[in-house]
Design a protein around this nucleic acid. Structure first.
Lengths: 231, 231
DNA sequence: CAGTGGTCTAGACCACAGG
DNA sequence: CTGTGGTCTAGACCACTGG
């Protein structure tokens, strides 16, 4: 804690004190005004630092009651889900892509329910395989809502993955991500070149824009895939 | 955008403009000064809003170059990993806990390597089963470093899960979380009451404090477990 | 070199909730 | 009612970087 005081340096010092137990769990830490005096800086600077600590769940801040160190901090980790191609490149491998199937189709009832669709809406059904150094990396099973994204019908999905095409055409979506494990069906196993019944890591992503549901995709990763995050 | 201008309202308006395409992908948005004039507020307020948008990966901000809308926003989702007991309670089920095994033991070499240990260090080996409405929910397989946390040797792990005991004694740790899928071994399957070879969702958490490694735990969830996040 | 974001400051007012 | 955090403001200086 030498040099000029910035809100990031204050945040780091707060993090240190919490981890070192200098600020006790469940106990209030000094008020913003007190910390501002201690570090000889403006209260706004302290505020910005404590706000950042509260954002990561380490502090619980309440007016009048002050800021207390969270007793049971919920482990909060930020998951970054990049483009599959980038993911492969980041591992130092050569990415590949093979379109397996692309045709208009009305989703089966359970998929419609998951998408929150009231009626039968035409979708583009896409199956594709992503390769890492020529070995199967992830099997992509996707539904694209043609009511929301009619242009998708003409997307050159044999050359560019739906993943990237969508990102280029509708980059900013909102949605939900679900992580789970699933046993590989015989067909999935054949495509991913692994034993039938293998435990697969599955990422399901559902995205929408204001106009409606955009896509529902299940990414079935070949065995051995891990997702790592720092806390 | 009526009422008083706050940095959160500015952030939300920026999010709307990005999603609506009013701020074009890859293009610079107005400068902070311009936005401050538009919304008739101080530049610091605009700055706080844009900083929040940059934090979530929607904007890329560079001095002199200005802020541009990210072309391929990396989907960033925050994963919240609560106490297992809370996780069960939050699902409206009754949590249960059974200690299966707890004894000092030197970890096998691969575990030592994962923990970054140079020599043989005594650990407490813990196996426990968490129940949800009397049905197996997650199998906890843990190593606790007795060099870092000697008190753990006397923890009443038959009554309180290591999870909670550690959180109460060493609440603020840093570490790494890994998510993967794994096939259930015969023994694991028996404990979790599922077919051998079932695809299990596995959360591995490794935590440490300044003094050294604290614990390595693998949480093997019974089939059907899903982890959901909003983007 | 000039324009942009990054940050600090000092002061102010407000909202909220604990006592 | 009062103390705490939440936020805004106006101004300032700095750091970086693109032209």
């Amino acid at each position: 804690m030498t040099g000029p005081v910035t809100w990031t340096s204050l945040r780091d010092e707060g993090l240190r004190r919490i981890r070192a137990g200098e600020w006790e769990v469940g106990q209030p830490i000094p008020t913003e005004a007190e910390l501002a005096r201690e570090f000889d800086c403006a209260r706004a600077t302290v505020n910005r630092a404590l706000q950042a600590l509260a954002e990561t769940g380490l502090l619980i801040r309440r007016r009048r009651a002050g800021s207390i160190v969270a007793a049971q901090p919920v482990a909060r980790a930020t998951l970054r889900i990049p483009l599959i191609r980038r993911e492969i490149e980041d591992r130092g491998a050569r990415p590949g892509y093979r379109l397996l199937h692309a045709a208009p189709e009305v989703p089966p009832t359970p998929v419609q329910a998951a998408l929150g669709l009231a009626q039968n809406v035409a979708h583009l059904r896409v199956l594709a395989l992503h390769l890492s150094d020529d070995r199967p990396f992830v099997l992509e099973s996707r539904w694209i809502n043609l009511a929301t994204v009619p242009e998708a019908a003409n997307a050159p999905l044999d050359r560019i993955s739906a993943n990237e095409w969508l990102l280029n055409h509708i980059p900013h979506t909102e949605g939900r991500i679900t992580l789970e494990a699933q046993a590989a069906s015989a067909e999935e196993a054949a495509t991913l070149d692994c034993p039938s019944g293998s435990a697969l890591f599955v990422v399901e992503r559902q995205t929408r824009i204001a106009a409606g549901s955009v896509t529902l995709v299940r990414l079935l990763y070949a065995p051995g895939h891990r997702l790592t995050m720092e806390i």
